[in-house]
Design a binder for these strands. Structure first.
Lengths: 254, 254
DNA sequence: CGGGGGTTTGACGAACGTCAATCGGGGTGG
DNA sequence: CCACCCCGATTGACGTTCGTCAAACCCCCG
């Protein structure tokens, strides 16, 4: 379920690609110096952990209890109730960080991989970002990443509290489109979509059956296409009108 | 709607009381040195702003765009939809901070006072907390306050996503009990409760009518008493069983 | 050619929303 | 001190959205 890989065995192209996700995310938030980019590239060549799909991401497979970064695959921060109900609190995409504390599974909080997942130790990024004088770009980008996560949590709350199934799904899809674009995972109005309808239900606070019906509706309207683990946006305008999605701007964060 | 008060005119007892809220909150999160406590006491003697009930808290009444702290009264961070729907994203109690950016009301984000509200400029606290070496306690407490807010947002998401009206209300009441206790606003199993049922509805993602019916039920069961803007806990055990509330522990944060 | 996880569909029920009328209580002005 | 008033709380009837249960279906893989 979990393996350690030493990447010196692999080509630099692959390492650069992995580092690229973090670099893209940070660059989207704040301009980085060449030195900072080099530091991120070095991280990409470091040892990384692989978690199988549907597995619990625990601190066990990680070298030490430091923040880790996802370099490929999706994960979910979930809360579970005693009777089996489950709510996904936050979706984690490549470029996002996992706080170390959360990797110790507790009764109410756990992180589960939703697909095959690769993570790297973020210790060096963390310590570099803490020194705002030496690495102003990394420092600011880290703060903005945190602020952006807060904004996504607020979106999540507004969806669950005051939007119906259709609006919730439209809003979530646009948010995922935004997040994928930020790390370069989008192409031609489509994004990877590794979520089952059951996972989508736990994310949107709905039943699996109702998620299915809502997807059918979006399909019939030709607003989206969902096939082969990929989500195609056929009518972004319709989604925006329905959900009042407001793309987060950096100036509104912090 | 908004006034500036210069507190040297008032007695030190009053100033200490105001500073007490922030000091209590920080002390609950992390031990503070005497020097740090003195710094907080000085803040309490500073000029503060007063906002009328139901007013918009804007940066206008504040000396400068820095984080501010609530020293009395409750406020709400809300999002509003074009058709009038409203969702409260986060409730702000004495001892909580308002980020400056949020005090510039935008289409989707605004902060509204729910009662008469007093805030102080948190600039000095902020700069002191940034220097982790000089003020380790303030620094850690600030970080923990942020982590705790995240935990409350997660609670909010879980409530809205997977709990029914009764469970949501029970869970929220216990969370408020915890938060009030942290700043010494509780007494003998009761807390101040300045929220109307309509506000409660926007917080819990329900209609006002359904909030009322749920409160009636809790009353009939003698689980709570709600009178004169005060909430009495008659059966905490029942609330905990219903809602699976898990009081946040500092070791789980960060 | 099965097998199995995920998806789709229908019938029915429960939780919650909406509308509208009424009630209650505490603050204000006479 | 009393009457009035107004906002919020309360109640009932009814409609809608969404959940539940259960069966069938559909692919993708082995």
């Amino acid at each position: 379920m979990l393996q350690q890989t030493n990447s010196p065995l692999e080509g630099h192209r692959e390492a650069d690609f992995r580092a690229g996700v973090i670099a893209r995310r940070f660059s989207a938030l704040c301009g980085l110096s060449q030195g900072e980019l080099d530091l991120l590239r070095k991280i990409g060549r470091a040892r990384y952990a692989t978690h199988g799909p549907r597995s619990m991401v625990s601190a066990l497979g990680m070298r030490r209890p430091a923040p880790h970064y996802i370099i490929s695959g999706w994960a979910a921060h979930t809360r579970e109730f005693e009777d089996g109900r489950r709510q996904i609190l936050h979706l984690l995409l490549p470029g996002d960080s996992l706080s170390a504390q959360l990797c110790v599974p507790r009764r109410q909080h756990r992180i589960q991989s939703l697909s095959s997942l690769q993570t790297v130790d973020g210790e060096e990024i963390w310590t570099a970002a803490c020194d705002a004088h030496a690495h102003p770009g990394l420092s600011k980008a880290s703060a903005l990443a945190e602020a952006q996560e807060r904004a996504f949590l607020f979106n999540h709350i507004a969806r669950l509290g005051r939007q119906n199934a259709y609006e919730r799904m439209a809003h979530l899809f646009l948010e995922l489109r935004f997040r994928c674009a930020q790390v370069g995972m989008d192409q031609e109005e489509s994004i990877p979509f590794p979520l089952t309808q059951e996972v989508l239900a736990d994310l949107l606070g709905l039943s699996g059956v109702h998620v299915n019906r809502t997807i059918q509706l979006l399909r019939r309207e030709k607003t989206i296409r969902l096939k082969h683990r990929r989500l195609y946006f056929l009518n972004v305008e319709a989604l925006m009108r329905a959900s009042e999605f407001d793309p987060p701007k950096m100036t509104h964060l912090i």
